[in-house]
């Protein structure tokens, strides 16, 4: 770990290619929120664990979108936490949904099916974007928060 970067030397996150990251996050946040709300409101009893995870993912995406778009050191820290959590989430839930779907109460593994969550099968229902995005996000955060002058 490098020493904390003073706020004055931090480059804003939502600039240049970072704005593309924000828009992809925003679209994923909308998608995950819509899907989890529909699942929870219309058929929560089907797969409560999976649908709760869907909702957690949605909240994390919303927070990450705001954290990437908003200025300030505090938001940058939240961006690190949420995007790190996301990578862990997609790896853990992705693996579980594949090797032990019964743990999540998922019977139907179709990534486009009614029991699909954003993170099941590493986000296959969202073209694996949920797997690629946190990696790109962390790379972007690292490049923006490294001290510019050593």
């Amino acid at each position: 770990m490098s020493a904390p970067v003073p706020a004055s030397r931090r480059a804003p996150l939502a600039t240049g290619v970072g704005r593309v990251l924000v828009v992809v996050y925003a679209i994923l946040a909308i998608g995950a929120t819509g899907r989890s709300l529909t699942q929870i409101l219309t058929r929560f009893a089907d797969a409560p664990v999976a649908y709760t995870l869907s909702a957690v993912a949605a909240v994390v995406y919303i927070l990450a979108t705001i954290a990437l778009a908003a200025p300030g050191a505090a938001w940058t820290r939240i961006a690190w936490v949420t995007i790190g959590f996301e990578l862990a989430g997609v790896l853990v839930v992705g693996t579980l949904s594949w090797v032990a779907p019964q743990l999540l109460g998922i019977e139907d593994l179709d990534p486009f099916g009614r029991q699909a969550t954003v993170w099941s099968l590493y986000g296959a229902g969202y073209l694996l974007i949920p797997l690629a995005l946190p990696v790109l996000g962390l790379i972007w955060l690292r490049s923006r928060t490294r001290p510019t002058a050593r």
Binding site: T15, V20, V23
Partner: peptide, 12 residues
Amino acid sequence: ERDRWSSVVLGV
């Protein structure tokens, strides 16, 4: 911000 990334945002 008007740069090439704006075009990517619209495309995405």
